[in-house]
Design a binder for these strands. Structure first.
Lengths: 326, 326
DNA sequence: CTGTTAGCGCATTCAG
DNA sequence: CTGAATGCGCTAACAG
């Protein structure tokens, strides 16, 4: 900015006014400064600016990791942001194994210097406001509490998946569950158990194992599940990533899908269609979830409180080729 | 930081030293300060810190938009970053229609206050260093020039796609090209033309139209292509997004795929498998491209120049269900 | 070992 | 209408 000021023969303050469209600058100097700015390719530093003005005009999406789930969400937010005038930044902090609290630390770091508001994905704990900026949670640890939240109907999804498998004639149905600390995982499991109960089929507890939502964490449990003496005829995996890994494990064990084993996933991330065979799964409207979260955040940034503090979107069945009737 | 200092009964400078692990702090004060930091949940502000130290330890990925291509790349970068000690931020600035220069402006904005280095995706123009930070380009406008670059072998991909269609017996082959300002688009088209020439098949220029890489921009040209009197029997679309939209247009025109029309795409983004029918396409190793770019950037941040300044990865055929033999 | 001082790039008073 | 002074939160050099 000093360079621009010198070049234009004015003071730094004047340049600042021009950049921020403040009144009190003559037309002549305005254009001169604008010209110099264009020539030099000057652009205000985000960090320094926010240090003073406490406003950056950018919204942050905090994710633990860029995997299919979070990137789908991101696409939804990205599509919806064009009309808002905000810019978008996605941040993935490092959190060596600590699954709790990473979002708080990252948020404080970015708040007040990089972003005006944040969407946090699968956070473990959040307050409604962190570091002075508004926050909306997507699919949080504890289910909707004090923070504006958007999620999908995980319970219904669990029921749908289970009833589908039951309808196909399966009885020995395994459940490869998600991260026990996430409400979404608990709800999917609850849907599974209640659908089984309603159908009068008893759940074999040895067939309910923790997959943890990630491919690596699912591999061991999946192998265990499929190596036993009386293995299941179908497995309901808590998300697509673990379902896909389960398919790979099954194949390595010489099991054919769906002939020897039916598998159903959850999420409907694009990768599920890439699997062989294409994975039957429960779809969450990921992009719509992202768009809804953005909508709520913008409302909060405008100083209002979002009308419904919790938005819950429906889950639906997507039938592909990984299940068969018994 | 002032709060922490007061609470711990030390000066701000001492807190700074503790935070940054500098020498010259007694064990006693160190622990005391650490305790207060934990209590208060203090986290240094990214912006303010970098203002002073010119280092943030975060790497930026700049994209025009979060669509399948860039998010795949992002996954690759994300996977590769764990071992580096850097954090990752993805930024999508606003650029109402201006396809040129957005990356330069965003870069200057973030450089020296948010990121230490950047990977820019499909940039139109970049210098080797912008705002004082190192930059590597992925799939740039002009092809590898002065900036370290990684891309896929677009020419070979164009040849492969075209020869595949020719091998299937097609002769009236259309090409829905990409953004004419991008080198990758030009190379794919060149591959198409040369493969046609080598096979002794003349290109009907009315069958070569600009699709622009985006679904919206491809719709009109696709419709035009398929509505004409002697329409093509096959189309080679410059990327998956435009190929998928072309399939939708074809369907709306009452054409069945692949019975009435064969379509092949380019990129192999996950969405291509979700299409109905699943799209046959030319795969770019997007995640590997992202990982390679990160590798080069880290090398540059360490003060070295990356060994090969331009990395070119191979493209391969992925046969699915959108093409048939004539 | 610790505190003091100065200044990173910018936006905002407040005087000219 | 413009410029000089001040401080945002932090770190680096230096002094104690």
């Amino acid at each position: 900015m000093a360079d621009v000021a010198r070049e234009a023969g004015v003071s730094v303050a004047t340049v600042s006014k021009v950049v921020n469209g403040r009144y009190g600058v003559s037309r002549a100097t305005l254009e001169k400064v604008l010209g110099v700015i264009a020539d030099l390719g000057y652009e205000a530093s985000l960090g320094a600016r926010s240090l003073r003005s406490l406003r950056t005009n950018v919204i942050g999406v905090l994710v633990a990791e860029f995997e299919p789930f979070s990137t789908e969400l991101l696409k939804g937010v990205s599509d919806a942001i064009d009309s808002t005038g905000y810019e978008l930044i996605a941040y993935s902090g490092r959190h060596h194994g600590e699954t709790v609290g990473w979002e708080r630390r990252s948020l404080v770091r970015l708040a007040g210097s990089v972003i005006d508001g944040a969407i946090v994905v699968t956070p473990t704990i959040v307050d409604a406001e962190i570091g002075g900026i508004p926050v909306v949670a997507v699919d949080p640890h504890t289910g909707p509490v004090d923070v504006p939240t958007v999620d999908a109907d995980n319970y219904a999804g669990g029921v749908i998946a289970t009833e589908y498998l039951l309808g196909l004639g399966h009885r020995r149905i395994a459940h490869l569950s998600g991260r026990p600390d996430l409400e979404s995982a608990r709800l999917r499991e609850r849907g599974f158990r209640e659908a089984m109960a309603r159908a009068g089929v008893e759940v074999d507890e040895r067939l309910v194992v923790v997959g943890g939502f990630r491919a690596e964490s699912a591999e061991g449990p999946a192998r265990e599940l499929l190596s036993g003496p009386d293995r299941p005829t179908a497995v309901f995996a808590a998300n697509d990533l673990s379902a896909i890994r389960t398919m790979e494990v099954a194949r390595s064990l010489g099991l054919r899908i769906p002939e020897d084993l039916s598998i159903i996933g959850f999420d409907n991330v694009p990768e599920s269609a890439l699997a062989t065979p294409p994975l039957t799964t429960i779809a969450q409207p990921l992009k719509a979830i992202g768009a809804a979260a953005l909508q709520m955040l913008v409302t909060m940034l405008d100083g209002a409180t979002p009308a419904p503090a919790h938005v819950r979107l429906p889950t639906t069945m997507v039938e592909r080729a990984s299940c068969r009737a018994l």
